Amino acid sequence: MTRLSRTLLADGRELLYFDDAGTLPRDPATLVDNRDLPPRAEPGEVRFDALSGDWVAVAAHRQSRTHLPPADQCPICPTTPANPSEIPAPDYDVVVFENRFPSLGPVTGELPHAGAPEHSGWGLSAPAYGRCEVVSFTPQHTGSFAELSEQRARTVIDAWAQRTEALSALPGIKQVFPFENRGADIGVTLHHPHGQIYAYPYVTPRAGVLAAAAAAHFERSGGKESLAASILRSEQNDGSRMILEGEHFSAYVPFAARWPLEIHLVPHRHVPDLAALDGAEREELTVVYLDLLKRLDRLYPTPTPYISAWHQAPLVAGLRESGRLHLQLTSPRRAADKLKFLAGSEAAMGAFINDTTPEAVAERLRMVADPALATAAPQEGKHA
């Protein structure tokens, strides 16, 4: 069972150690951060875009954040005498800590209402309420999530679940978003395998669109079926885009995929977030998620850059009930030596043009399954 230890860094930021099952209890002395850090920066701000109805975070202080440091200066490697890092302990399994250069937070609160009929919303701003956390998957400076052991991957999933529950309870938080940016082509600023968690004081634009569609479908069905369940059933019946089907989770390339590589991983049970998954579901998620990441890396001779985005139901009445947890795993890689860039149509209009067919991508992802998992992992899609 994952064990949790809490401490504070020298500037007051929270840090949590999540230990693998079987790890020995931590020496309390290793929880002390002895660095002389400057006080935390004041929160940035969020500004309301009256044209779109979106909130935009303004975080100029992030210009000075750490950018691709050498291994001996990595801020999330374990502390050494030569490198007093963000992690006081000389070793760890998984850690989560408040970002030193956050886009949101550290304070939380309610944003002002932007929908008053007598006000256009122009000029409306507020403190950048919320929370931004870093999740380090391993003390090893090199590697990737796909190379973690199943035990370590399960610890990360337990950490995501615990942080989802804790952050969801903070005042003013409307959405919790765990994610990983992997690869220089995605724009990572640290080579060390890690992810992040954002707790937003508003429902993000993409989540708002997804939640509205889910709520409308739920209402049309008389509250009997979620949109995610309906889509999964349709994908299973068609079969051409299925990648794998398990007892608790299934993965497929969506019918209208926007990206050259795009995978949706969905639970069979209606759950709003990672915190709601039971033990059996987390066990299977560990295996399936590692499997999907490894398939991405088998597609080409070099590692595939990706964004792993965990969509969780917003913490808003009317959207929470119909929203359903799912993973959106995407990559801009459209060939071994080509990337898709968001140019005019995508960046300006939000109108995506895909250079690949979802059916062909699904076929390739089925073909690169690890033969060693054939008897232990969930079964392949029926058209494999």
Rank of each mutant, 00 (worst) to 15 (best):
R3H: 09
L4F: 12
S5H: 14
T7Q: 03
T7V: 02
L8W: 09
E14F: 03
L16N: 05
D20V: 02
A21D: 10
L24D: 14
P25S: 05
D27W: 09
T30D: 06
N34W: 04
D36C: 11
L37D: 00
P38C: 11
E42L: 14
P43N: 09
A50L: 07
W55I: 05
A59R: 09
A59D: 13
T66P: 00
D72R: 14
Q73C: 10
C77N: 07
P81H: 01
A82G: 14
N83Q: 12
I87N: 02
P102W: 03
G109C: 09
G115Q: 10
E118G: 15
G121K: 11
G123Y: 06
G130W: 11
H141T: 08
F145S: 07
A146W: 00
L148S: 03
E150M: 11
A153I: 05
T155V: 09
A161M: 07
L167F: 07
L170E: 10
I173A: 01
Q175V: 12
Q175F: 14
F177E: 07
E180M: 06
D185N: 07
H192F: 11
P193G: 08
H194E: 13
H194Y: 14
G195I: 06
Q196D: 04
Y200M: 06
T204I: 12
A207H: 13
A215S: 10
E219F: 10
G222K: 11
K224R: 14
E225G: 05
I231G: 02
N237L: 12
M242G: 05
Y252S: 02
F255M: 10
W259Y: 13
P260M: 02
P260G: 02
I263W: 00
L265R: 11
L265M: 09
P267A: 05
R269P: 03
A275Y: 06
A276I: 03
L277A: 02
G279H: 15
E283M: 08
Y289S: 06
L292I: 01
L296D: 00
D297G: 01
L299R: 07
Y300I: 00
Y300T: 00
S308E: 04
A309R: 12
H311D: 06
A313P: 00
P314L: 08
P314V: 11
R320S: 13
G323P: 06
G323H: 12
G323T: 10
H326F: 11
L329S: 03
S331D: 00
P332K: 03
R334P: 01
A335V: 00
L339I: 04
L339P: 02
L342Q: 10
M349F: 14
M349G: 08
I353V: 15
T356E: 13
T357E: 10
R366A: 04
A369V: 07
P378R: 02
Q379K: 15
E380L: 03
K382L: 11
